[in-house]
């Protein structure tokens, strides 16, 4: 592929940080705070190089007080600033959920639309490196279930930057959930898709718009985050076996682009939803419900899902990969749909 001016290959982490940096240059009201976002650059690289460019005044290391600094982000947003706040692991939601759910997400509604809370809460998700039950969850279904916050989940460097810029410019609270395994970190095994072409200049990826990550005709995989990368790998393999897989990368859960999902499912008549979040009462069931509400007859084969079984995420590698949505499981499910 020819490289356009200003386009080069960067990691998802770097793309996120670039998105934040461009917005910080454009708008003095934008600032970043969180644990280790300063000189460290974010434990998962989300604020790489920002401290050097903008200094401690705009890239603020916080105490380990998630309730305190997420609440402070809300207060700053209410007063017209545009904070980008990092919750280091989404698993830490338990110590600050009141600020997220009862305040960040509800203030606009409770105020009858009179108060805006333009903040981004970015947080690391996902498993695959033996961090076990309290540092490996995805949990986007939990947040998407609660009204009042937008939820975006990028799967690649290009979307990571464009969605970050959109999130910062949005007048609503946006929960930005990035997968540790898709950040392109040097200290974690990565899919080559975690490094990709990203324009240097500013651009947006719209919130609420899914992407067809790969076109196909036989089976639709509806998925998001790191599972998009796994699904693309599987689709490439299956192409050699004569199976044409279309992949819908949801990118946003709130608002959810049901139109793109239904269009693809309508085309293939076979759907597999791949989700690293827990199986029950979550995203996979939601997609099934949307299809059922629209037209159950659009499916040629019964609905299939590959998701985290309803167990806490285990530590030992065989156990962890026993529950994760791996390429093998995705492939088996697709082949099963085509059988």
């Amino acid at each position: 592929m020819s490289t356009a001016t200003g386009t080069r290959r960067v990691t998802t982490a770097k793309a996120m940080a670039e998105g934040i940096g461009l917005e910080m240059q454009r708008d003095p009201n934008v600032f970043v705070m969180g644990e280790d976002v300063g000189a460290y650059g974010g434990i998962f690289g989300s604020t790489t190089d920002l401290f050097g460019e903008f200094g401690a005044d705009r890239v603020i290391d916080t105490p380990i007080s998630e309730t305190g600094f997420i609440g402070a982000g809300i207060g700053a947003a209410v007063e017209g600033l545009r904070p980008v706040v990092e919750l280091m692991f989404v698993d830490f939601y338990g110590v600050c959920m009141d600020q997220i759910s009862n305040h960040m997400a509800k203030i606009h509604y409770e105020s009858g639309g009179n108060v805006k809370v333009p903040m981004v809460l970015m947080t690391a998700t996902g498993a695959g490196y033996s961090d076990a039950a309290q540092h490996s969850q995805s949990l986007w279904g939990t947040f998407a279930h609660l009204p009042g916050m937008k939820v975006v989940v990028p799967s690649n460097p290009y979307d990571a930057k464009g969605l970050m810029i959109s999130a910062i410019q949005d007048d609503n609270p946006v929960l930005y959930m990035f997968h540790k395994g898709a950040q392109g970190l040097v200290w974690m095994e990565k899919n080559p898709r975690s490094i990709g072409e990203v324009p240097e200049e500013s651009y947006t990826v719209p919130i609420g718009k899914a992407a067809v990550a790969r076109e196909g005709t036989d089976v639709t995989i509806v998925t998001l985050s790191l599972s998009v990368q796994h699904s693309l790998d599987v689709a490439e393999e299956l192409e050699g076996e004569g199976i044409s897989v279309e992949i819908v990368d949801l990118r946003s859960l709130v608002p959810l682009d049901t139109e793109t999902v239904l269009e693809s499912v309508g085309k293939t008549g076979r759907v597999l939803v791949v989700d690293e979040d827990y199986k029950s009462f979550g995203l996979t069931g939601e997609i099934a419900a949307i299809i059922a509400e629209n037209d159950p007859g659009m499916l040629k084969k019964p609905f299939r899902r590959v998701a985290m079984p309803d167990v806490p995420i285990p530590y030992a590698r065989p156990l962890e990969y026993g529950v994760l949505p791996t390429r093998d499981k995705i492939k088996a499910a697709v082949k099963d749909l085509m059988a």
Binding site: I70, G73, A76, V78
Partner: peptide, 9 residues
């Protein structure tokens, strides 16, 4: 915490 954020602003 929200008041802290307002004060911060």
């Amino acid at each position: 915490p929200v008041a802290c954020g307002q004060a911060m602003a």
